[in-house]
Design a protein around this nucleic acid. Sequence first.
DNA 1: CGCACCCCTACCCGTCCGGACAGGTCCGGC
DNA 2: GCCGGACCTGTCCGGACGGGTAGGGGTGCG
Lengths: 227, 227
Amino acid sequence: MLSTTDERPEPAADPEPIGVMLVDDHAIVRQGLRSVLEREPDIAVVAEASSRGEALAVLERVSPRVVLLDLKLSTSSDTEGLELAHAISTGHPQVAVLVLTTFLDEQLVLEAVRAGARGYVVKDVDTAALVRAIHDVSKGESAFDARSAAAMVRGMQAPPAPVEPTLSERESEVLQLLARGLSNKEIGKRLYISETTAKFHVGNILRKLGVSGRAEAVYEATKRHML
Amino acid sequence: MLSTTDERPEPAADPEPIGVMLVDDHAIVRQGLRSVLEREPDIAVVAEASSRGEALAVLERVSPRVVLLDLKLSTSSDTEGLELAHAISTGHPQVAVLVLTTFLDEQLVLEAVRAGARGYVVKDVDTAALVRAIHDVSKGESAFDARSAAAMVRGMQAPPAPVEPTLSERESEVLQLLARGLSNKEIGKRLYISETTAKFHVGNILRKLGVSGRAEAVYEATKRHML
DNA sequence: CGCACCCCTACCCGTCCGGACAGGTCCGGC
DNA sequence: GCCGGACCTGTCCGGACGGGTAGGGGTGCG
C-alpha cells in the first residue's frame, strides 16, 4: 500500500482508521454522531443508512468494521432494530454491531445480545465512552457500559420466568377488545362467538399473563408491548 | 415590534450570531447538536444544560436567544420537559424555546405550544430544517416542521373533547393500584380507607376518563401517560 | 357566611367477572 | 390412528364490579 497521500504530523496512530457505519433513521442524530466521530483520527465514518433495507444494501458494497445501530424502540416496530442486528451479524459476521440506544431496557439488552450485538451503549454516556466502545468492538471485544452490563447480569441470573407467554391469534384479538373496555358479551358479539367463548379466551389470557383481572392484564400487556 | 436598543453595525453577515442554549440530558446528543450548529457562522452555542435545574440556573447568568429543548418523554417524567419549557418562557420571555424531540406526539405538540414553546421540530428532519427553525424562532416567528404543524392543526380543530381531565391526588394513587390489578377491597386496605371509599374514587376515575370499566381505564391512562 | 372542592363512609341492586366443571370440533404431527 | 393444540360451547356460582342515593368531614375563596 503506497501511503503517498498526506504527511501527518502524527507518526503514531492510524495505520488505517476504523470504518464505522451509522444506522439511524434520524438525520440529525446521524449528523451529530458523524461530527463527534470525525474528531477521532482513528475512526472514519464510511457509510450511513436510515433504514433496515438501506443498511443491508449498503453492506453489500462497503464493509465497515463497526455498525453503530440506533435501536430506537420508539416507532412501534419494536423488533425491527433487533432483526436488523441479527441480519447483519449473521450475514456479515466480520462486522461488529454496536447498539446505541436512548433508553436502558433490561429486556432489550438481552435481546440485542441474542441478536448478535457485540455491545450496547446508552446515549446517555459521554463521547469518550462511545469512542471507547467502538474501539473495543472493533477489536473483537464486547462493549457494554456500566448500566447495560448490570442490566445484562441481572437478566442473566434471573431466568426463572423469562419465558414470554405466547398468545394465540384469537387471544390477541380478544386482548385488543379487552383493553378497549369491552365486556365478555360485547367481545363475543364483535367476534361472532358466544359470551362463553369470550370468557374462555379471556381466562386463558389472564392465565398466560399471570394476572388476576382484566385491568392488570391491560397493564401487563402494555408493558410487554402487546397492544 | 421588538426592534429595540441594539444598533446593528453590519446589516450584512453576522453582526452578532444567534446565541443558542442546548438542553438535553444526553451528553452525546448535546455534543452532536453542538457540532452541527457550530458549522453555522451565524449561530453560536453559548450554553448547555442537562437538567431542569441546571437550565434555569444557567439562564440566570446567560441569555441565549434560543433554547433548544429536547423534550424526551422517554424517562417517565413525561411532563418535566413541558414544565421547563413553561418555566423558561414565563421567566425569560425574551428567550425563544424551540422544542426538539424524537417522536411526533400529536398531543405533545399542543402541550408544548401551551407551555410556551415557539417551535417544535422532530429530530427526524435534516440539519438544514433545524437551522432554519432556529433562525425563525430567533426572529420571533414560530417554527414547526411539516408534520408537527399538521399535528397541531388536527389537534386545534378537534376541540370538542380536548379538556384533559385532572385527577385528584387520591385518584391518582388509586389509579396506580387499579392498574396493578388490585380490587376495590385491596385498594382500600392498601390506602387505609374503606372498600366503599375505594369504589368511590374508582367511580370518579372512570367518569373523568370517560370510560366504563377498569380495563379501559388502564388503557386510557396509559395512552395519556398517567401511569 | 355560603360555595366549591376534595376526601371519606354507608346501603342497595343489577350486572359482570373469573374459576371450575364438562363437553364439542377441527387440524397437523408423531 | 392417536395425541396435542387451538378453537368453540355450555352450566353453575360466589364474589367483584359499577351506578345510584345519601350522607359525614375538611380546606380555601369571594
